[in-house]
């Protein structure tokens, strides 16, 4: 090994170390800054209690519930839509449809979240208000529609990749045994791509949980337990964005770091799951 090679390796290694320190230091910061709360409350209190800062209750259960509810519901909407779109792109539609649809989906991954929220505020919120007589119109339902639309393109692209990774011989075998495109898609392609599909879903769940702007702009931000989709609710992410202006010394302020921790743990679990699934998918196909 030459000196130059050793030097290059050292510099690049140092940069990698710096980059790898980032995810760790984010977690450490969250834990350290949330500590004032942990000294006066137990973890269960914080995770299962209600949010009444004036009464000295800093539980984040309502926010966690709203986040999970919103994320799971938008996943439930986006999954069939993405599967359908990916199916069209995979070949259930003629190329006249497929090619522009694929382009459009790719471009949609670039739509700014804040624009989804913006359009939601001026189009969806009044519509929901008039249709359901739902107070201000800012509620989980108003956030659900744009949020599911936002995660659909990425999910569709994930699914398309998973379908494209299905080995050709399997497809040929299905076609040769007389399956038409739809039968082949449902009986052969989806089952053999199931690990890739699962990984795509888990990652999209992470994105839905982590989204801030749509929930902040459309969900209403009332810090109480959501009892229905027409209720104003506050997600963990919106909670962080709203409480940030509080006094730095207060327990209220420390509670947003608990939210940060919960979000961090949720999304990194999603990332780890997706990674394991993809690794399994690779082993399976390779």
């Amino acid at each position: 090994m030459t000196r130059r090679e050793r030097l290059t390796r050292k510099i690049l290694g140092a940069a990698t170390l710096c980059a790898a320190a980032l995810p760790l230091s984010i977690l450490i910061f969250m834990v350290v800054l949330a500590r004032p709360l942990f000294s006066s409350f137990s973890v269960t209190d914080l995770l299962t209690g209600t949010w009444e800062p004036l009464q000295g209750r800093y539980g984040i259960l309502p926010m966690m519930t709203a986040s999970l509810l919103l994320a799971l519901a938008s996943l439930a909407v986006a999954f069939p839509v993405s599967l359908g779109c990916a199916g069209l792109i995979f070949g259930l539609a003629p190329p006249v449809v497929t090619v522009p649809l694929r382009r459009l989906v790719q471009l949609m991954t670039g739509f700014p979240t804040v624009v989804y929220g913006f359009v939601g505020v001026f189009v969806l919120v009044p519509a929901v208000r008039d249709l359901f007589q739902a107070g201000s119109g800012r509620c989980l339902l108003s956030a659900l529609v744009p949020l599911s639309l936002m995660i659909t393109p990425t999910m569709t692209l994930f699914f398309s990749d998973a379908f494209a990774a299905v080995p050709r011989p399997i497809l040929l075998a299905a076609t040769a045994s007389g399956a038409d495109p739809v039968q082949r898609f449902v009986w052969v392609v989806i089952p053999s791509a199931r690990r890739g599909l699962a990984a795509g879903m888990v990652l999209s769940f992470g994105r839905a949980v982590g989204d801030t702007l749509i929930a902040l702009m459309l969900a209403g931000n009332a810090a109480r337990m959501p009892s229905g989709f027409l209720e104003s609710s506050r997600t963990l992410t919106a909670h962080v964005a709203l409480v940030i202006a509080a006094d730095f010394q207060s327990l209220e302020f420390a509670s947003i770091f608990v939210c940060g921790m919960v979000l961090y743990v949720l999304t990194s679990c999603a990332a780890l799951c997706a990674w394991r699934m993809r690794a399994a998918a690779e082993r399976y196909s390779g």
């Binding site: 990698t16 980059a19 790898a20 980032l22 995810p23 760790l24 230091s25 984010i26 910061f29 969250m30 800054l33 990652l203 992470g206 949980v209 982590g210 989204d211 801030t212 992410t237 962080v240 964005a241 940030i244 730095f248 947003i256 770091f257 940060g260 979000l263 961090y264 999304t267 990194s268 999603a270 990332a271 780890l272 997706a274 990674w275």
Partner: peptide, 25 residues
């Protein structure tokens, strides 16, 4: 390392912002 960066890619932007905010504190 790959897993580390997968985790970093999944961290919600509001948490990243919170981290930036605490760094500035």
């Amino acid at each position: 390392l790959t897993v580390f960066f997968d985790v970093l890619a999944g961290v919600p932007s509001v948490v990243v912002g919170l981290f930036g905010f605490s760094v500035s504190l």
